[in-house]
Design a binder for these strands. Structure first.
Lengths: 237, 237
DNA sequence: AAATGTGAAGGGATTCACAGCG
DNA sequence: CGCTGTGAATCCCTTCACATTT
């Protein structure tokens, strides 16, 4: 039993643990919808595809939410994971670059769940600037800083061509945005304190090609202890 | 000096190394375009944002390509990385789900570089099936297996809604595709031997929210040894 | 009896630091 | 002299295994 829970919840959380929280969150959401009130670590871990011990340790970093001999109460655990991810807060997002990818994100369910909310859209194409997308007028990228300040944007998403991404990122940072999701295949150079997550679609394909061309090489066909029927999952590792 | 290079090149390559190869590849491509003939590990590592020792060890897993006291010859190294990623081969790709995201991928540069080539498109929407995208007729998802076999597809990309993704994945596997890039927020259950890479856009946002709400917590503001001016990069870890 | 939470072990990847080579 | 390639150290995460709790 832990005396000072705030001390625990302030400990540093490993990156891999953070990356798994959204998976737990989604699995728990599905369970709530289905009326499942209760899970063991083995069950939840099975759904997400991780080791039960890993799941228990992940959760234990935020406090002790389970009951020995019984497992976890689904709605309660979901609320805790939700809180850990801060999805109960309002997260206005700016999307810069209204091409196919930008529009896909605008309409994606994930970008409108939790506290996420598309608040600012921007582009440089005169044919797009001034038009509406999902009830929001597309601003010219030049006015991005004002718009972000006005809407209190805290997360910026870059879906522009590679050539524009560095300058867009700098504008976002100038507007006080220090969390950036970058889809342009560019390593952004930004001041310390800015968190960048890079999603590189071409790189994902290339990694698949690598493993495909080396069937015996990489982490393929681990042939794990009796766990046939499970795919080799290579998730961002 | 290594006697049997094939022995070395057959060693298992760590996942993180594989994930960095595309970054090296892109940086080297840019250098070739700019006419740069030569790099040291420090220079290339700086561009990509990794430690020079990490870069040297990564490359050394495929053989020894550098010259001591001098560095690496850019075109030669690029050719080697290109070969390691098997980008010199033909990679016909199937994209299932022709929504905004699917179309973004069809037109994305990364999906038409290297040996990648969109060979099959499929969807279930009657308004889309039979129409053309980029010179290719969209097939009905029911005919996906035949089309994949016909076009010798080896990589499948799933950009359908979550509800359809498992069944689409099974169809791809039935057609002999055993490398899948899945954008649906679902943990696919597939036979061993199938490699799945998961790209989860909502999860990326949630991870950003996590770090944003814990400025002192995670890996934010590492305040590393005099390395100001560099962003905290959280890439798929 | 069953399942959590965690000390300890184990396994990898990163980074240091330097021998070796051009 | 400068830079690569790599043994060794370090760090971090995963997993085992079990004491603990309900």
């Amino acid at each position: 039993m832990l005396r000072d829970e705030s001390a625990r919840s302030r400990r540093r959380i490993p990156g891999p643990t953070v990356a798994r929280l959204p998976l737990y969150h989604r699995a728990l959401s599905v369970m709530v919808e289905r009326g499942i009130t209760h899970v063991s670590s083995s069950e939840l871990a099975g759904v997400v595809g991780v080791n039960p011990a890993t799941l228990r340790r992940d959760l234990s970093r935020f406090g002790t939410y389970g009951t020995r001999g019984t497992g976890y109460e689904v709605p309660h655990l979901l609320a805790r994971v939700d809180g850990a991810l801060a999805l109960d807060l309002d997260w206005p997002v700016a999307i810069v670059g209204i091409g196919n990818l930008g529009q896909a994100l605008i309409h994606s369910r994930g970008f409108r769940s939790g506290g996420f909310r598309v608040a600012v859209l921007a582009d440089v194409d005169p044919a797009v600037v001034g038009t509406m997308r999902d009830g929001i007028v597309v601003e010219h990228a030049e006015r991005l800083p004002e718009a972000c300040v006005r809407e209190k944007v805290r997360i910026g998403v870059i879906t522009t061509p590679a050539s524009a991404s560095q300058s867009v990122a700098e504008n976002l940072v100038a507007a006080g945005v220090h969390s950036i999701l970058n889809f342009a295949p560019v390593v952004l150079a930004l001041p310390a304190g800015v968190t960048v997550r890079q999603v590189d679609l071409a790189a994902e394909l290339q990694v698949l090609a690598f493993y495909h061309s080396r069937p015996a090489g990489g982490a393929v066909v681990p042939e794990a202890k009796g766990e046939a029927g499970t795919a080799t999952i290579e998730i961002s590792s």
